[in-house]
């Protein structure tokens, strides 16, 4: 039998790669535990621990903390992409992909496409926990869908940054520590859990420079007013810019040969 070499499109190759990553998750569902358990744990812990002190009660604290936890969760879900990519490089499977007659972006894009599932699961876990604790946003359901989409897109854009870090880092362990550190810094030095004006001046400046602060603000505005604010537009445009820049950087790093 002669094997025909059909010209399979890059899109199809990306789909196959995404399928590979989904299969990996199906065989090891425990890899999803972090994105599922972390938001539930933090939401309950922070909600009951700080709710009284910061907002005078859990119920009043929920509109503040739900978007905060949401963003913290997608940061950690997104950082998983970098670890995954580094692990694949260490096993040598990426070398094999490189010798295939496929576009070099396919293995990376496939990974990132499959990671959307992680993001969506992380978001659902966060919002459901909030709901069970009594969070009832005062807007039409359509706006909830809107913030889910913004959050997924933001998380996906951040995934590309971590993918780049994954390709440049020396080891998967190093990627993991970088991920944890950036996740902690970006989520705690922001308005995720506390109103920024309670911070000392120096920290207030940092928190205002932190892009996560603006993403969280955009989500809170949408949930409070049911309108698409300017901040939300800025977030979307920044996400797009991040994807464009980091997708190119990632492909460059991937192709970079010694």
């Amino acid at each position: 039998m002669e094997i025909k070499k059909n010209r399979i499109s890059t899109i199809q190759n990306i789909n196959t790669m995404a399928y590979r990553n989904l299969l990996k998750t199906l065989h090891n569902p425990d890899h999803l535990m972090d994105v599922l358990i972390q938001p539930v744990m933090f939401m309950i812990l922070f909600g009951y621990l700080f709710g009284g002190a910061i907002a005078g009660g859990v119920h009043a604290y929920l509109p503040i903390i739900v978007p905060g936890i949401l963003i913290q969760t997608i940061l950690s879900a997104a950082s998983g992409s970098g670890t995954q990519i580094k692990e694949d490089m260490e096993t040598g499977i990426f070398d094999r992909f490189k010798t295939l007659p496929i576009a070099h972006i396919a293995p990376l894009a496939g990974q990132l496409l499959a990671d959307i599932l992680r993001l969506v699961l992380a978001i659902i876990a966060s919002l459901t926990t909030g709901y069970l604790m009594g969070w009832r946003p005062n807007v039409a359901f359509g706006w909830i869908v809107v913030i889910i989409l913004i959050t997924v897109f933001t998380g996906w854009a951040i995934s590309w940054i971590y993918a780049f870090i994954g390709l440049m880092a020396k080891s998967a362990t190093m990627v993991e520590s970088i991920s944890l550190m950036t996740m902690l810094l970006l989520s705690f030095l922001s308005n995720a859990f506390i109103p920024i004006n309670t911070l000392p001046k120096f920290l207030r400046i940092i928190a205002n420079l932190n892009p996560m602060t603006h993403v969280i603000t955009a989500i809170r505005q949408i949930l409070a007013t049911g309108t698409f604010s300017n901040t939300a537009w800025i977030v979307l445009i920044s996400d797009l810019a991040i994807v464009l820049i980091f997708a190119s950087l990632t492909v460059w790093a991937y192709n970079r040969q010694n």
Binding site: K5, R7, N13, T16, R20, L100, P101
Partner: peptide
């Protein structure tokens, strides 16, 4: 699954 995925990536239907 390994063989299936690599077959697809190699352009097989």
């Amino acid at each position: 699954e390994n063989l299936l995925i690599f077959s697809r990536l190699n352009g097989l239907s």
